[in-house]
Design a binder for these strands. Structure first.
Ligand code: FES
Ligand code: FES
Lengths: 135, 135
DNA sequence: AACAAATGATACCATATTAGTATCATTTGT
DNA sequence: ACAAATGATACTAATATGGTATCATTTGTT
């Protein structure tokens, strides 16, 4: 029931590392060494981060990845959207969408409220705020 | 990633039905008819609700289930604890517990805050508040 | 006493999701 | 030409979840 899955988690770690490391290009190799994430898995994540333009990739020898935006402007919620399609704390047990009860279902309504609050909290956690040392 | 799973959801529905229905004993049969939940599954849920004393069961012919507490005093969070072992929105990717980074992990810290808020919201949603009609 | 109708306990299966791996193609600096 | 990097994609393994089946026990009714 974790709020963030492994993809998101790994992505956050990778981005934090990049935020701290001022070097221009950072290769998957370096990230693997530092983060101890299985290499093919990390590469997959970096590829989608590239597609979604959170970072930019450069091929070829001495290529690698570069952040496109400053770490203050990358938020956990962005990554949750990319890797998990958003936060859905309420999945109706009746699979048929849309649920016929949705308008009268009080439980659904309450869970929706909670969901909204969670999302707005995730929207203000930036990579920059996670990259620092503990205070 | 749903906050409540099917067991919890079905339990809520069953309890709401019982809250609305003033009859003394309510059998699994009636609940199945009304809620359209697979019978063996519902029975399993009722059994654990009995063990955890949310309701009380009576065997034998014309037996059934009775709420032990008033619906105002049964909260969604109680059911989440029973059927899901609580809310854990932060599962560290390093399975080894306890995680060596836990004290310095800023992400974990932030998610823990969110988790706390979610729990306190679930703690105030009562069965009574879900059993009523929509206003 | 026998029976039927209810719950108790428990073991099992099926399906979906998630985590992780493997492979080959493409680009580019030296 | 080659090595070192990423791109794309398909596959497998492990785990969690949802659901079923079976038999035992209790108890009111006849
Ligand atoms: S029953 Fe479908 S949303 Fe509540
Ligand atoms: S790395 Fe284990 S809690 Fe953050």
């Amino acid at each position: 029931m974790s709020l963030i899955n492994r993809d998101t988690d790994y992505a956050i770690r990778a981005l934090c590392f990049m935020a701290k490391n001022k070097k221009k290009f950072i290769s998957a190799k370096e990230l693997v060494r530092d983060l101890k994430i299985p290499r093919p898995f990390l590469r997959k994540i970096l590829q989608t981060l590239n597609k979604r333009r959170v970072l930019r990739s450069y091929k070829g020898k001495s290529g690698g990845f570069v952040l496109v935006q400053p770490p203050k402007k990358i938020f956990v919620m962005d990554l949750v959207r990319i890797f998990q399609g958003g936060v859905k704390l309420r999945e109706c047990i009746f699979k048929k969408k849309p649920c016929p009860n949705i308008r009268t279902c009080l439980l659904s309504r309450k869970l929706k409220e909670i969901e909204g609050k969670v999302i707005s909290q995730l929207e203000v956690i930036s990579i920059a705020s996670l990259a620092g040392e503990i205070k």
